[in-house]
Amino acid sequence: MAGKSTSSLPEVHRFITDHDADGKAVFNKSVPEEGQWQPISDAANFFLAYTTHGFPIALNPAEKAPDVTSYKNDLETVKSLTVDNGSVLRFVDFAPDTEPIMHRTTSLDYGVVLEGAVECHLDSGEVKTLQRGDVCVQRATNHAWKNISENGGWARMMFVLLPSEAPVVGGKTLGLDLGSHMPDTVEPK
């Protein structure tokens, strides 16, 4: 059930720019500005803020806004964490006091802490603490996020995910691994 986030953090609004018939910049009104959140588990809520397909990103014919049309379709159909040959902009609200879920996607991700404090756990046992404004460049590694915000508050991160090659280490390909605890709602198509 998509809707308002169950976190205590402020709502996220998405504003998409476009062009009018004269080529002037305007705001596209075909997608609601309010975030449509999807509860993934007791641990997190996702908001799929935008997606694209292909590089470079198709903006023409401008009158038809093909990227916006594609994103509107993805809001109904995308169930994977990444998009093949495209980009994903996602917000994630992490609940306090929940166990991190170890996972790996075949993508290069920029993860920026917007609110709270978050630990990035790697399967090697290494851990880094990220504070508001910090960024983690996650390069198709097995990782997990844990909210460690003070006073039991929610944490929010923004992620940009870009498809990547699967890393090959010691002759072994390290591909998608959603772990045994990742919910079915984010299984790849």
Rank of each mutant, 00 (worst) to 15 (best):
D123W: 12
G152T: 10
A155E: 05
L176A: 00
E119S: 03
D177Y: 08
E119K: 14
C120S: 15
W145A: 08
D123T: 12
Y110C: 11
V127H: 10
E165G: 00
P167T: 01
P163D: 03
Q138D: 13
K128T: 15
L114E: 12
I148C: 10
R156H: 09
Q131A: 12
V168N: 02
P167L: 03
T173R: 00
L130C: 07
S164I: 00
V168T: 07
V135S: 03
V137C: 09
Y110I: 12
E126Y: 15
K172N: 11
G133E: 01
A166L: 01
S164Y: 05
L174I: 06
Q138C: 11
I148T: 13
S124G: 14
K146H: 08
V112N: 07
P163K: 00
G171N: 01
A166R: 01
D177M: 06
D177A: 10
W145M: 13
H143P: 09
P167D: 04
A155R: 03
K146D: 02
T129A: 05
S164N: 03
A166I: 00
W154Q: 06
G111L: 14
D177H: 04
R132C: 04
L122C: 10
P163G: 04
R132E: 07
L114Y: 06
G111I: 15
L130N: 08
V169W: 03
R139L: 02
V168R: 01
G125K: 12
P167R: 03
M157Q: 10
V113H: 06
L122H: 13
V135R: 05
K128M: 15
I148D: 03
A155S: 02
S149M: 04
D177F: 07
Y110E: 12
V168I: 07
E165R: 02
V127K: 13
D134T: 07
G152E: 09
K128V: 15
Q131F: 10
A140R: 09
G175S: 00
V118Q: 10
D123P: 11
K146R: 15
R132I: 05
F159G: 11
T141F: 05
M157A: 13
L161F: 12
D134I: 08
G116S: 03
G125Q: 11
L178R: 02
L161T: 04
R156P: 06
L176F: 00
S124V: 13
E126T: 15
H121S: 12
E150M: 08
S164R: 05
S124E: 11
D134Q: 04
D134N: 14
C136Q: 14
K128W: 12
G170T: 08
N151T: 08
G125T: 14
V169F: 06
G152A: 07
T141M: 03
F159A: 14
E126V: 14
D123R: 08
V127R: 13
D123Y: 13
F159Q: 02
K146V: 09
L130H: 13
K128H: 15
N142V: 14
E119Q: 14
S149R: 05
L122P: 13
A155K: 08
H143I: 06
A140M: 02
L162R: 04
L174R: 02
L122S: 09
S149I: 07
G153N: 11
A117M: 10
L178D: 04
E150I: 05
V112Y: 11
V160W: 08
K146N: 03
D177L: 02
V118M: 05
P167E: 07
V135T: 14
K128P: 11
S164C: 01
G170V: 06
L161S: 06
F159V: 12
G125M: 13
